[in-house]
């Protein structure tokens, strides 16, 4: 019997919970247009997991990476929720991310 799988499952559960926290905070302070950056971070973590020798560390990187990829897809819906008044809304102007015009043209992904 090994608890390694359950440990990974619990880590996944925890990091998804952390995802809800950072998505809300990021949308509030920066706005949903920053979505490509968590997406790239997530993809980089998943790519990095391919080159880690230890299977356990590779698993943790993969789970964290997938969580950031998902969070990137959640930012747009979070912005709509804030617009609707379901979440606290930051009325101030938020900083534009680099390449903002390109990001606006591409459109934010969501599940």
């Amino acid at each position: 019997m090994s608890l390694a799988g359950i440990t990974l499952g619990l880590f996944s559960f925890g990091i998804i919970g952390f995802g809800f926290f950072w998505v809300i905070r990021t949308e509030y302070h920066l706005g949903y247009l920053w979505w490509p950056f968590p997406l790239l971070l997530g993809l980089a973590l998943i790519a990095g997991s391919l080159f880690v020798g230890d299977a356990g560390w590779s698993a943790l990187l993969g789970i964290a990476g997938a969580s950031f990829v998902w969070g990137a897809t959640e930012l747009k819906e979070q912005a709509v929720r804030a617009d609707l008044g379901w979440f606290r809304r930051n009325p101030g102007r938020k900083p534009a991310p680099p390449l903002v015009d390109l990001i606006k043209r591409v459109g934010a992904p969501h599940l």
Partner: peptide
């Protein structure tokens, strides 16, 4: 050789979250 464990975990995590939403 590439370590594929992380990729499998990433796929499982993303699909788990996707199903959790959709």
């Amino acid at each position: 050789m590439l370590q594929l464990t992380g990729l499998w975990m990433a796929i499982a995590t993303f699909l788990g979250i996707w199903w959790g939403h959709v």
